[in-house]
């Protein structure tokens, strides 16, 4: 019974992680970059939203500024990577560390309360079903916007950058610029999820973003497994990622409910993600069946 009661809350939190995972999807899958900024930019989103609301701001402008701050984080990583030639993964780590200090400065302390009783928040864990509906709406709008974005000339150029950089440049695409924009966009989405998380949980804490990248990757991987062989467009793929976020969090809650030592949870998440990330490699190395050529003969 207790577990069932926890489900709406788990689903709501899963949706928030799903939104964050959409941000990870943009860098990891679309741009083919591993961006570790997210552990920091998620907290930036939380901190900015919480501090502005604590200062009396309305929730909407507070969230907007949070998203812009997240985009700024991605911009920094992007410039480290493209202008300064630092490998993407290191760029993200550097920004993440910078953000640790920045986030502390934003809040002036390690955490900031944002109780729903005092503040006019959009969602709160006190009203889980209401939160579910609002979050689902956020997901629909986000997926629709990104779907349209990927269909534009600019978005197609961004996808080409992630798919084949050499080709993209030969087709006149400024790949550096598109990487920076992609990183900014991704971290903007991550910060949005942070802003939502702060409202939902009623607080922002400097430690809340730790391991966010792993949860995001887990959601992306679960999402891919779920959509499997379905006809794939970006709506299906991104919906898969969001569902992946929900599945991740529901499983997480269930495992806690079953009495697993919560200290071990991060380790388990990481191991599960490691196994799934290894699958393509393992398949290639150990299960390499010669595949029939799916190539037509008339070329």
């Amino acid at each position: 019974m207790g577990l069932l009661n926890a489900m709406p809350g788990a689903a709501a939190q899963g949706l928030i992680w799903g939104i964050m995972a959409i941000g990870v999807y943009i860098t990891f899958k679309v741009l083919d970059l591993a961006d570790l900024t997210v552990d920091g930019s998620m907290v930036t989103g939380m901190a900015v939203c919480a501090m502005l609301m604590a200062a009396g701001w309305n929730v909407w402008p507070a969230m907007l500024i949070a998203v812009l701050a997240g985009m700024g984080c991605g911009l920094v990583t992007g410039l480290f990577h493209t202008l300064m030639g630092i490998p993407a993964i290191l760029s993200g780590i550097l920004t993440q560390l910078i953000l640790w200090s920045v986030n502390l400065k934003i809040m002036g302390k390690a955490n900031q309360a944002l109780p729903a009783r005092t503040f006019d928040v959009l969602i709160s864990q006190l009203e889980k079903y209401h939160a579910l509906v609002i979050l689902a709406l956020f997901c629909v709008v986000l997926v629709t916007l990104l779907y349209c974005f990927f269909g534009t000339k600019f978005g197609a150029a961004l996808r080409a950058t992630g798919c084949n950089e050499k080709m993209a440049r030969a087709q006149g695409i400024n790949t550096d610029m598109h990487k920076v924009v992609g990183l900014a966009l991704s971290n903007g989405v991550v910060a949005l999820s942070g802003a939502l998380m702060a409202q939902y949980s009623g607080k922002a804490d400097i430690n809340d973003g730790r391991g966010a990248i792993v949860i995001g990757l887990a959601a992306v991987i679960i999402g891919e497994a779920i959509i499997g062989k379905m006809p794939q467009n970006y709506i299906v793929r991104m919906t898969g990622v969001i569902v992946g976020g929900i599945v991740y969090y529901v499983v997480y809650q269930t495992v806690i409910f079953l009495g697993l030592d919560t200290d071990l949870l991060k380790m388990l998440s990481a191991l599960v993600v490691a196994v799934f990330l290894a699958v393509p490699h393992l398949k290639k190395t150990y299960f390499n069946k010669p595949r029939k050529k799916e190539v037509s003969k008339n070329a």
């Binding site: 534009t152 000339k153 600019f154 978005g155 197609a156 150029a157 993209a168 087709q171 006149g172 695409i173």
Partner: peptide, 14 residues
């Protein structure tokens, strides 16, 4: 992607 080579790639449908 090729037909837009050398052109501005804005936010219109590809």
């Amino acid at each position: 992607l090729a037909i837009n080579r050398g052109k501005k790639r804005g936010f219109t449908w590809a």
